[in-house]
Nucleic acid binder design. Structure first.
Lengths: 117, 117
DNA sequence: TATTGACCTTGAGCTACTTCAGGTCGGTAT
DNA sequence: ATACCGACCTGAAGTAGCTCAAGGTCAATA
């Protein structure tokens, strides 16, 4: 499929996909006879994973490591597993942050309400 | 109190506080005779709020609007209330994102497990 | 007295995109 | 046939939001 479809399926923007490819985060993107990128289902699954990892705060540095491991094949699965479970722990921390911020906002909004009465 | 204490209390880094002040996000920071910044309790509460808003993804653009309103005094409370409740909705969306990503990670980790067996 | 440590300012550097300028290609309307 | 359109391409420049380095002030301590 073409880049616009890859973008709408993965969640990433077209420009970001091109940027990621240039950065070496997306291995093996085929090209058509006219020079246009041809994304396979596997490509799009990979992009989708990248999208979610970034969206939830994985730094590019780690993403780069993860992508390098992915490019090396199945032998790196234990390392990749390690990275993903570490990220899963980060998600828990983010959820805590959201809860805290929610509490702060609730208090603040209450104070505003009180002022307005 | 001095900037280092304001930093450790608010969560922001020293450099970030100076940057925010330069950007006009922190009104009325007093200075001592030696030119050092003197933060009041109100200053620190405000910085803490800025910290949490940024930490949970409020863009600087919105933060700037919010700060401008804050600087104008109590008459802007309805507008500020509006911004904060909009942000509260964003938090819900972020929580959804975390849940989705968690699901993706769980599936991925399971596949890895299967491969390793 | 000399040095340490926390602060100050200005200005450059960095990350992760994002936008722009300028060009190619395939398909449709005149 | 040709003129235009939209989606794609590349390489370079621009942006957001910090972050760090260089060089200087001042108070307190060894």
């Amino acid at each position: 499929m073409r880049i616009s479809e890859a973008a709408s399926r993965s969640g990433l923007k077209i420009d970001t996909i091109r940027y990621y490819e240039a950065e070496g985060l997306v291995p093996d993107v085929a090209r058509g006879t006219d020079g246009q990128r041809c994304f396979s289902k596997e490509n799009v699954d990979w992009l989708t994973l990248l999208y979610w990892l970034r969206e939830t705060g994985m730094p590019m540095k780690v993403l780069r490591q993860f992508a390098a491991l992915y490019a090396q094949g199945d032998s790196t699965i234990p390392d990749r597993k390690h990275i993903l479970s570490a990220h899963s722990k980060l998600l828990a921390k983010r959820r805590d942050d959201l809860d805290r911020c929610d509490a702060i906002l609730a208090r603040k909004l209450e104070i505003y309400e009180e002022y307005l009465r």
